[in-house]
Design a protein around this nucleic acid. Sequence first.
DNA 1: TAGTGGTCTAGACCACAGG
DNA 2: CTGTGGTCTAGACCACTAC
Lengths: 235, 235
Amino acid sequence: MQYIRIKDAIKEQIQSGQLAAGAKLPSERKLADTFKTTRVTLREALSLLETDGLIYREDRRGWFISHRALHLDLSLPFVFSSVASAQGRVPSIEVHRAESVMANHESTTYLSLLPFTEVFNIGRIHRLDGRAVMYADHYVRAERLPNLLQHPLDGNLAELYRENWQLHISKCCYTVRSSTFDALIATTIKSTVGAPSLRISRVHIDEAGVAQEYVIEHWRHNAISLDMTVGFGDS
Amino acid sequence: MQYIRIKDAIKEQIQSGQLAAGAKLPSERKLADTFKTTRVTLREALSLLETDGLIYREDRRGWFISHRALHLDLSLPFVFSSVASAQGRVPSIEVHRAESVMANHESTTYLSLLPFTEVFNIGRIHRLDGRAVMYADHYVRAERLPNLLQHPLDGNLAELYRENWQLHISKCCYTVRSSTFDALIATTIKSTVGAPSLRISRVHIDEAGVAQEYVIEHWRHNAISLDMTVGFGDS
DNA sequence: TAGTGGTCTAGACCACAGG
DNA sequence: CTGTGGTCTAGACCACTAC
């Protein structure tokens, strides 16, 4: 199992701090040479390190050392910018898509909509220190937020909803599972198809108990760590 | 991108219900033949499907169709057997290791122990319908639970602690991140090194605010889906 | 334009699973 | 014992990045 040996060697280099976060690894051919093996085997080792979260790739640009993960507390409302800043990271959000569409199967289900209802669909790329780490796909009930798309959408959406339409989110249902990037998302965040991801979906519910927004977040799986504290009454 | 085509073809077979959960895929050589390609490329496709969670492997036995995921609600105390039964699955737990050890770095940190403190270390294999899906590694403060290891350890541990030592867990701190199986765990749950996993660590805190137990659960990443509902006061 | 990563081929050997 | 999965080699071509 050469590729285990290689994986461990690179891992040690990283963990001993020889390689800084964000640094690029030598080319695959050079590495294969160094470890006296072929690219196929070398890539197997890299692939392990990727799944393990120690390195990541940017399509056709190469392999890079992962940054530390962003810690997310699911028991608090999620505001990307605040969370990132609080952890010393530089966040930015880019609106990738914003349009009015027919609700798809998932959004009709989670938002309890009738078929053919119109919803706003907003796709946003989230970056930390310049690197794309998450793509969020929002589906929002259109009738509750008229002219939403005429507003700036690169800030805190919950705040936008609250200030312009008095829409208050009081409850959130999460589902978290591990997944992979499909071609579309891989392309937009410059990752690769099949790279491991963490998929967090949220249903945002207002004070009246109506599901107003359905969000699917696709995280580079090594960019995030979920934390939370739960108290138990008694069971 | 042949392997994408192959991946999609197999995926469709699975999702259309042609292949039942738990069924074994044809041999790699047969599949490679079917898709008129080589094993290397075919394995690339299988690897994608594995990361995506649609299939899994058992070491040297082959590739199998995944079962549906177990839904876990993090806001409730976690009892493997009850959760599994409630979802129509057949759970079983096997004690793999139970010993008294010197606390390692992680456990001293999370349990706030002095170095060289003795802790009980219990490793348990968790199965659903006969298939190993999770390995849990427990570190428990020894002084609070004398003779713990003389008790049967294949049931609900929280209940055991409560009934024999009046230890009540009232709070739990979670951390969830995606990871991979190391050689040890891969072997014991018959998975393979580097297979993607979901790592849930829990710190169990008693009524006095003392961290009594530190548990690391290593889940086959496709075997689990985390759910939870959170209410927000206002932020 | 040179070098890189992404993809693919056509073999090979070994250790283990299952009959 | 046979076939399978796990691992590895030594090439190759293409599209894109970076210069």
